[in-house]
Amino acid sequence: MLEEVKFKVLRYDPDKDGKKRFQEFRVPIRKGMTVLQGLLHIKEKIDPTLSIRFSCRMATCGSCGMMINGLPRLACYTLIEELKTRTVVVEPLRNFPIVKDLVTDFEEFFNKHRSVKPYLIRIDTYVQEKSNTMYLQSDEELVRYVQFAYCIKCGLCYAACPVVATDKTFLGPQALAQAYRYYADSRDEAGVDRLKPLGDGSSLLRCHFAASCSQVCPKGVDPALAIQLLRKEVLLRS
């Protein structure tokens, strides 16, 4: 068990000189310590100006995504000892604009998420106003989409995607997985209307199936699978 590790953290402050540079900190570690706890140690004991975003500390809120030793990971879900290095390199998530230090701007990402209408669309909206309305679903119907419903919108898949890196018009793995999640839900009635806006060259068909999204997703969502299933529907039905 290591006693101490070096944290190499990318610092960036647009209100100061706006330059990106790495700053090093020595952090004492104990068993079971996460990268987020290491960063909090730095913020509390060494440099309070370090900006990080987190909330739940249990891989549920999706706020603490960052590049840790070169891969997109959740800081609260990554044990320092599992990295098996003496140096932990922490940078803001790729493919996102940086706000300050490790905090990135999710506006574009959330806009893309919103654009796929991530909610059930029904023709009987008036029925839903009655509080006792239920839409029953069998287990098979549930399994068709439930995996994709585990998404916590952490953006790790978006940071791993080589297509998003160079084409910002591409919707990205998260939004497309959600498009499929609602399309595959037996309670949803939008049908091919969900597919039509995805048939152009950039929103869905730009996916080259590098599947890096599925490699880094901390919730087992497998966006690459959802995208291929969605692509099949778009190719065959819309």
Partner: peptide, 18 residues
């Protein structure tokens, strides 16, 4: 792309293999 050689979606079990 035509969905022919993909696994079916399942409930993820950890450690998860896509």
């Amino acid at each position: 792309h035509f969905g022919l050689i993909l696994k079916k979606p399942t409930r993820p079990e950890y450690p998860y293999h896509p």
